[in-house]
């Protein structure tokens, strides 16, 4: 589940964001407790807690005292907007770099994309 090439708390936060974006976690839905999460994924609970704290800080999750943590109502829209912003820089730029290395022109790429429509 987790690799050791980046901090696990960041991997946890990314995983939950992906679940929210894909719709498998919905607005105002309760997420697992840190202990449930730790025992499910076999990780230290403090590490899991840090991942959840990060999401609370970012406003992706909110806490209800004594009950648990829930998905913020605006989280899906906010996350989608963030990811759309990053899409060109993070997903497309590397593709264009590779295209340049192997000599594929932008025209060829647009032609290919046109045929996929």
């Amino acid at each position: 589940m987790f690799h050791d090439r980046s901090p696990i708390y960041l991997q946890i936060a990314d995983g939950i964001k992906n679940d929210i974006l894909s719709g498998s976690l919905r607005e105002d839905q309760q997420v697992m407790s840190t202990n449930q999460y730790a025992s499910f994924y076999r990780i230290n609970p403090a590490t899991a807690a840090k991942g959840f704290a990060q999401l609370v800080d970012e406003g992706v999750l909110y806490k209800r005292r004594g009950i648990g943590m829930f998905v913020s109502p605006d989280a899906p829209a906010k996350l989608r907007a963030e990811r759309r912003e990053r899409f060109f820089a993070e997903a497309l730029e590397p593709v264009l770099d590779e295209a340049k290395r192997v000599g594929i022109s932008v025209e060829e790429i647009t032609h290919y994309l046109g045929s996929r429509r």
Partner: peptide
Amino acid sequence: LLHDETDALRG
């Protein structure tokens, strides 16, 4: 040699 959070060593 080192005493740190495990997560800080990843990456």
